[in-house]
């Protein structure tokens, strides 16, 4: 990776089944992520993905680019728009792309990420710092 490189975009399909599985694994059972009725009542267009699920997809793109599951040192993002997930087999898609901003002498790589759903940004100021050789245990 070199500063200025554009990394190949990655697309993730998100269905209602994914949200149910994530709710169980994370423990976040907020009904706006599984009940159309509750989501509409609070003014949402329908059931939306957990923000932390969207972030997990962006992180998944980062570990794939890094080629290491333990490469992520730091990650931050702002949740700008919800990701509505329709109740059908197709669901929706989240696309994640990135530009390499900086590679420092200590082997740390800084990425600026973009995450979109149906052409609209769902994460803003999304940044990752990675160590492609892995964090390791320094205990």
């Amino acid at each position: 990776m070199r500063a200025g490189n554009r990394l190949a975009p990655q697309t993730f399909r998100v269905t209602r089944a994914d949200l149910v599985r994530y709710a169980g694994a994370s423990g976040d059972f907020n009904p706006i992520h599984w009940s159309e009725r509750v989501a509409m009542k609070v003014g949402l267009p329908g059931v939306i993905a957990h923000g932390m699920y969207t972030m997990a997809l962006a992180v998944r793109a980062v570990t794939a680019w890094a080629g290491a599951p333990d490469a992520v040192v730091e990650f931050s993002a702002r949740f700008t728009r919800p990701v509505p997930v329709p109740d059908d087999d197709e669901g929706t898609e989240v696309e994640v792309s990135a530009v390499v901003k900086q590679v420092d002498g200590a082997g740390l790589v800084r990425l600026d990420l973009t995450a979109t759903c149906r052409g609209e940004k769902v994460l803003a100021q999304a940044r990752a710092t990675i160590r492609p050789t892995g964090l390791g245990i320094r205990a």
Partner: peptide
Amino acid sequence: VVHGDQRFAYTRPIV
């Protein structure tokens, strides 16, 4: 309340 930003910084992975 709306979840605005999230950030995390690792020293080592959770095992």
